[in-house]
């Protein structure tokens, strides 16, 4: 009787051990799979700022090497982020539209999108505009980013430059721009209650954009 029960206990123990091993194995396999294939990053969302449900959406088609884009970013986008995006009033969407006339803008767009893959788009965008003169002249984009990316991040971003996701993201933005018949940057669109208006970029100072957004928010 005792021998029989001890056999049962031994069998149960072996079964439990086998289950534990199998469970640990499946956990490890899942972990390995997650490491091998990271969750897909929504690049469009990474390149946008604010809440999607904000009453006003500002779509900006930019070229990182275009001086007018830099001016708009420095003088209008940055205060907009603080005054309207942070408070949930404006959803700011960046679209890449590198123009062929700028030698390094396509490469800069790749760096920005690859940085978006690791959640560093804003930092890289700011650095690209701030140091536009430098990398615009030399083409050494990575030099302009060494203050905002760690060596490990730089390595990861460099590895993602020609990834299908980055290529597709830029191509998607370019297709949108072409569908709208755009030929220059920055091209700025403001959408409110389903109505979209393209505002003349040369005249779009922060003071006027602010007054227009304030007007829309009262409607």
């Amino acid at each position: 009787m005792r021998r029989k029960s001890s056999r049962w206990i031994a069998g149960l123990a072996v079964a439990c051990a086998a289950m534990l091993i199998a469970f640990a194995g499946s956990l490890s396999a899942a972990k390995n799979a997650a490491q091998a294939k990271p969750a897909r990053v929504d690049l469009a969302a990474e390149k946008s700022l604010g809440t999607r449900s904000a009453p006003v959406t500002l779509d900006v088609y930019s070229d990182f090497q275009c001086p007018s884009c830099r001016l708009f970013f420095m003088t209008a986008t940055t205060p907009l982020m603080n005054d309207y995006v942070a408070s949930g009033k404006v959803y700011l969407v960046h679209h890449d539209f590198p123009l062929p006339m700028h030698a390094h803008s396509a490469e800069a767009a790749k760096w920005a999108n690859a940085a978006a893959e690791i959640g560093k788009f804003r930092e890289v965008e700011t650095a690209l505009y701030t140091k536009q003169d430098t990398w615009g002249a030399t083409g050494k984009i990575d030099d302009a980013l060494d203050n905002v990316l760690t060596p490990a991040e730089m390595k990861r971003v460099r590895g993602l430059l020609d990834s299908p996701e980055v290529t597709a993201s830029i191509q998607h933005d370019e297709d949108l721009a072409k569908a709208k018949g755009l030929s220059g940057t920055p091209s700025i669109f403001i959408t409110h209650k389903g109505q979209t208006v393209q505002i003349p970029a040369q005249g779009a100072t922060y003071a006027l954009v602010k007054q227009y957004i304030d007007y829309l928010l009262t409607q």
Binding site: V197, P200, T205
Partner: peptide, 16 residues
């Protein structure tokens, strides 16, 4: 009126 202001301002002639 702001839409017309954007247009006038884009001529870059007058102060804001």
């Amino acid at each position: 009126w702001m839409l017309f202001a954007f247009s006038i301002n884009s001529y870059q002639i007058l102060p804001e």
